[in-house]
Design a binder for these strands. Sequence first.
DNA 1: TCAATAGTTTAGAATTATTCTAAAGAGACT
DNA 2: AGTCTCTTTAGAATAATTCTAAACTATTGA
Lengths: 141, 141
Amino acid sequence: MRKKLRDNSNETATMRLRQAGLRPTRQRNELAKLLFRDGHRHLTAEMLHAEAVAEGVKVSLATVYNTLHQFTQAGLLLQVVVDPTRSYFDTNTADHQHFYCEDENLLTDIPGPEIAVAGLPTPPPGTVIKRVDVVVHVRRS
Amino acid sequence: MRKKLRDNSNETATMRLRQAGLRPTRQRNELAKLLFRDGHRHLTAEMLHAEAVAEGVKVSLATVYNTLHQFTQAGLLLQVVVDPTRSYFDTNTADHQHFYCEDENLLTDIPGPEIAVAGLPTPPPGTVIKRVDVVVHVRRS
DNA sequence: TCAATAGTTTAGAATTATTCTAAAGAGACT
DNA sequence: AGTCTCTTTAGAATAATTCTAAACTATTGA
């Protein structure tokens, strides 16, 4: 019996889905297991689909798109907008920030305490602040 | 003779283009005049093209895309990534931040002093910080 | 246990923003 | 003016994503 760093059984995935109000189907279970197995990840739909296919999980790209959006709506994922041509999904839904390197198309979490954002501005009339995204753009030196 | 709030003559546009190292063609001149005539703006290629057409400027959508990218490279515009389906260009190239309202697809500058970002993190090895983007996502209340 | 039903998946077509191509057009320099 | 290079353009091509409607599957209640 192998030691598990993270409980990623079918039962866990199923529970996670039920709690989120999503019917635990085979595809959603499999995708949840892939997404949440190793620490935090930043994935595009294409990347997750390729990974699923590589591991022998039978799922269509359309379902991967649907699932990522459903998970995002349910608060299981965060959609991070940094690249005008791609959508990244982050398994870390806590308040945190990102480095983004355009040269290599690489999105990473900023480790450690978040950047302190002092003095939030007053939002435009009729709106409330939902969240603050901070992206530190870096360049290969 | 009308009073001008901002010098937006052909000569000014031409000068601006020459300084940026861009050949001042008719299309680039016209687009520059539209872009920089009234304070700061946040536009997509489609929006600028529609505006040009509405004002009787003969220019193709492909040229608008080319021009926006050339202006961005030349430092005349800033490309702001907030919407996974659209690219916005900002005529305000100074260091500043944005509000973004997904409900109405509206990008606005945060007025007044910028949000203080304390304690920039150490970038990943082999990279240097290029710029820090802060987007305050708001929701209609 | 089983059928009814309501939600889910899928292949493939459709859509949308954007980029490419290659031919025609227009500045710039002599 | 003539030549050269850069620019513009229409339309085709691409790429990510969404849509469609038919097949499938989890859930519920008899």
